[in-house]
Structure formats: C-alpha cells, structure tokens
C-alpha cells in the first residue's frame, strides 16, 4: 500500500519530466513478423489495448491489432480470415463495455478471451441519446447504450492494463517479474497522464465545453467536466437544423470550445467561430495514431486542451 502511494508521487513527478521530454518511448512495430515466431500471440480490439499489451509484454509476446486504419475499431466487422486469426490467438483482449460488438457476433475461443474492463463493469457509463448515424466504412451505427471509451479515464486505463498484465502472466508465468516491472512503468506513465489532466482542469471544472461526439464520457466523468456532446462529424457540415439546435443549447451552456475527434473541415471551423466557439482536437486514440504512441498522443491531447481551460 505504502509502496503504491510512493509510486503515485513518483509518477506525478516523472510524468512532468516525461511530458517535457515528449516521449522517449519508441513506437512499437506491430508487424515484425520475423521475430514473432514461436511467441505467444495476443489479439486486441483497439489501439490502447495493443499499446498496453506491447508495453507490458515487451518482446515476449506478439501483439496483433488487424483493424484497418480507416475504420473505427468500435464498429469494425472483421473478415472471416481475420476472425480465424483471432480464433487462433493465445489471448484475445477485449475492451468490454460493449466495445467492438462484432466480438459478440462471431465465434471466439471463450477461454482465451479476457474482458479488460470486467473488473469495473459497475462503473460503466450510459449514453442517453439514441440516434443512428454513420461515419466511415463501418456503416450505420448508434451511440446509444453503454459508453465504451473507458480508457479515456487514465485510472480505468490502469485497471485495464492491470487486467492485461494478469492475463499475460497467466499466459507466460515465467515472465511474471518482467511483466510486473513493465506494468509499473506503464502505470507511472498513465498516472503522469492523470496528473497532467488533473492539473489542467483543477479549479476550472465548471467551464462549459461541447464535444462533437459522445466519446468523452469517461474523461468528463473522471475530471468532473461540464461537457455536452453533439453528434457531429469533422468532415460533414451540420444541417441548419443542427446549428439551430446547437445555438439553442449554448444559450444555456455558453461553451467557448468544442472538442473534436479529428480536425474539422475549415468551413465547419469558420462557422463554429461565427457561433463564438473554437475547436480543439482530442484524439480518443481508438485506432493506431498516425504519429506517436498512446502516451504521446494523450500528452498531446493535454497540450491541445490547455487553451480551453485558460
């Protein structure tokens, strides 16, 4: 217990250092097939889990995340050949909280599946609005029901990473010490991230904010943010009706910033500016980022969010 508290303090300090040094972690190469031979295979359903598994497993496991980069892994449907890869994996890490519903519609080897969020299933958040819409090749889908972007709460991310670590230890008990060490490292990074977010919002929790998409539930919940979500796409100009509805809502929720999953089209940004709002990008990092790794992207999110809380 005392050790853990010490770790947290150390983590806060280290986090700052890390943030400043902006990532000494090398982005891991997921497809280094040659060196993967004979290794236990781990298949995951989103990038955060890939990152956690790679950080903890190191060179001892081969982590695979086969979702294409232009798909939202949450709504992706793998091809039968890809499903076969998942079936043959030694370990399949699920995000849980209804993330990647395809896993409920295919046959997987149940005993090799680990739901990384099962430990806190009582803390799942619900999204009230039931609207179907579509973006990307994943087709039409709905955000109603359970919010699944659990990892955006760094504390929940730590719990998920912990579960990943336990699963890896079950898989390769001989490497328990290594996995524990790696987990401690990861935990330090995630705690640093938590401290950074906390530092950002402390005292400014009431700042009204709008999210373009209802994906920041856990983040907002964790830091007690005053955040309202729309259902806008960065590349699709909202209809007049939606703008009217938006104007109506900001009358009661005078937000100055809108958080986007990706950089919005300039036309949208301009129109948003006309309505008195600036846009800021917070990448949820569900899929592999174009640059940097999970911690780096999150730290960049912290950096980008800064103006919204000033």
């Amino acid at each position: 217990m005392r050790k853990q508290r010490l770790t947290i303090v150390a983590a806060v300090l280290l986090g700052c250092v890390l943030w400043l040094s902006c990532g000494k972690q090398e982005k891991s190469q997921p497809d280094s097939q040659a060196s993967d031979e004979g290794k236990k295979t781990v298949y995951v359903v989103n990038y955060p889990l890939q990152y956690f598994a790679e950080r903890i497993g190191g060179d001892e496991v081969a982590v695979h995340f086969p979702a294409p980069s232009d798909e939202d892994p949450a709504f992706w449907m793998p091809a039968p050949e890809t499903i076969a890869q998942y079936q043959e994996a030694d370990l399949v890490l699920l995000n849980g909280a209804t993330y990647a519903k395809w896993t409920e519609k295919v046959s997987l080897t149940e005993s090799r599946i680990v739901n990384t969020s099962a430990a806190f299933s009582d803390r799942y958040l619900q999204i009230a609005k039931a609207v179907t819409h579509s973006h990307g090749p994943g087709g039409e889908h709905s955000h109603a029901g359970t919010d699944f972007n659990t990892w955006l709460d760094p504390q929940l991310a730590i719990l998920q990473a912990q579960t990943v670590k336990d699963a890896l230890v079950d898989l390769l008990p001989e490497h328990e010490a290594l996995f524990n060490t790696n987990m401690t490292q990861l935990e330090i990074d995630l705690l640093a991230l938590d401290s950074a977010f906390q530092a950002l919002v402390t005292g400014r929790e009431e700042t009204p904010l709008v999210a373009s998409h209802p994906v920041y539930g856990y983040f907002a919940h964790k830091y007690g943010l005053n955040l309202q979500a729309r259902l806008w796409e960065p590349e699709k100009m909202p209809s007049d009706e939606e703008w009217q509805d938006f104007d109506h809502s900001i009358e009661h929720h005078p937000a100055k910033w809108m958080i986007w999953e990706g950089t919005p089209d300039s036309a949208i940004a301009v129109k948003l500016k006309e309505h008195g709002l600036d846009g800021v990008v917070f990448l949820p990092c569900g899929n592999i980022p174009e640059e940097g790794d999970y911690i780096q992207v999150m730290q960049q999110n912290v950096g980008r969010l800064k103006p919204a809380f000033e």
């Binding site: 039968p80 499903i83 076969a84 079936q87 519609k105 295919v106 046959s107």
Partner: peptide, 9 residues
C-alpha cells in the same frame, strides 16, 4: 472449409 466464424455459421 473453415471453422465457425460468424453468427449463423
């Protein structure tokens, strides 16, 4: 053929 993959297989 191939093993079970999707619902309905």
């Amino acid at each position: 053929g191939r093993p079970l993959a999707i619902l309905g297989d």
